[in-house]
Amino acid sequence: MNVYIVVEGDKTELSVYPAWLGLLAPQLERIDDVWEVSDNNYYIFSAGGIPSIYNHVSNAVADINDINRGNHKFDYLLVCLDTEEESRQYLEDCINEKLKKDNRVLEHTKMIIFEHKVCMETWFLGNKTVFKENPQAQEYLRFINYYNVGRKDPEQMGNIDSEKFGSKAQFHHQSTCG
């Protein structure tokens, strides 16, 4: 099995996904050059944020089709991105619209959209070793009073201060720093 992974960011995802894959699919070996894919490999492409990720997913589809031509290699294209304020359906529509506009269809490979709702850091807030029930800093006490992710679903948390934190995702990211 070979997997082509497109991630939105260039830091968190590039640390977390390889670590996860090391546990979940230890047989997969990361490759630095996608054109050297053989068996049981995965390749991670960092797309530098939204909306550029849609262009890069489209280009990845073209590359996968080229690599697969004559010698099927990639089984999955995994697209990992933050939903932020949007729905999963919206992300799917954006990807499909871009592929349609570029006249590209992913052949013989399954695309899986792996959404981080709201962002990857939101998931970390659900991890008891990341979230501290008794932070010392006043700011984080204020965050807990606003929404206690220790007891409630982090994915449902809003934004405490939309002027200070430009988006829900920024607030979720900041909340992990406590």
Partner: peptide, 13 residues
């Protein structure tokens, strides 16, 4: 040979 911009290819390496 890749459809990605050369710069995007570079920063993946």
């Amino acid at each position: 040979h890749s459809k990605h911009d050369a710069f995007m290819q570079l920063i993946q390496t």
